[in-house]
């Protein structure tokens, strides 16, 4: 089973921890403790007949440490940027979090935009259209959730699983042709240096 690292980011008290808790424990706590530094949980899900182990990295919203964020974002297969639909500033901060991620990873990572707290529809300050615009501009996936009611949380993680698997397959496909060539070469002549083969394989994996 393959492990995938998923990093949750976003301003403080937008509901990162709550979304994760809803997903893992199916539980909601209005006053969950604030995250300091980073938290870590993992869960296995089944998507498209495959089991995928998700490592969820829950970062602190207030953490703006330049030297800490890289260690969180490094090796992430996917980054979830969460904002609070009742809080404009948290929506504006998306830009900051995006830049942070891209500074570290370039375009090498899938980004999910999540607007949380749909249960507080009355206090909404960010419309779905805005979210759509923002996401399409950058080619991000997006979704609105409510950790409180559990709305869309399962779907979120299903989508995360699907897109991770897709990306993984793409990567494997990129590597495969090279391997095929090599193996076919192997069949033709036995003079191929096995060390070279190994090198190629390794570089492909990394």
């Amino acid at each position: 089973m393959e492990n995938f690292k998923i990093c949750f980011m976003g301003d403080q008290s937008v509901g990162k921890t709550s979304i994760i808790n809803r997903f893992i424990y199916d539980d909601f706590n209005i006053n969950s403790q604030s995250t300091v530094g980073v938290d870590f949980l993992s869960k296995t899900i089944f998507v498209e007949n495959e089991s995928v182990r998700l490592h969820l990295w829950d970062t602190a919203g207030q953490e703006r440490f330049r030297c800490l964020i890289p260690s969180y974002v490094r090796n992430s297969s996917l980054v979830v940027i969460v904002f609070d639909i009742t809080n404009k500033t948290s929506f504006k901060s998306i830009e900051f979090w995006m830049d942070t991620v891209q500074n570290e990873r370039g375009d090498d990572v899938i980004v999910f935009l999540v607007g949380n707290k749909t249960d507080l529809e009355d206090e909404r300050q960010v419309s779905l259209e805005k979210l759509e615009k923002e996401a399409n501009k950058n080619g991000f996936l997006y979704l609105e959730t409510s950790a409180k009611t559990g709305h869309n949380v399962k779907q979120l993680f299903r989508k995360i699983g699907i897109s991770i698997l897709k990306q993984n397959k793409k990567r494997k496909e990129l590597i495969k042709p090279e391997l095929d060539e090599n193996t076919s070469l192997m069949n033709i002549s036995l003079n191929i240096d096995p060390n070279k083969l190994k090198q190629k394989e390794e570089s492909g994996c990394c």
Binding site: V36, G37, V38, L68
Partner: peptide, 9 residues
């Protein structure tokens, strides 16, 4: 820092 930062802080 992953484990000791929150402990310290």
């Amino acid at each position: 820092q992953l484990y000791s930062l929150p402990w310290y802080r």
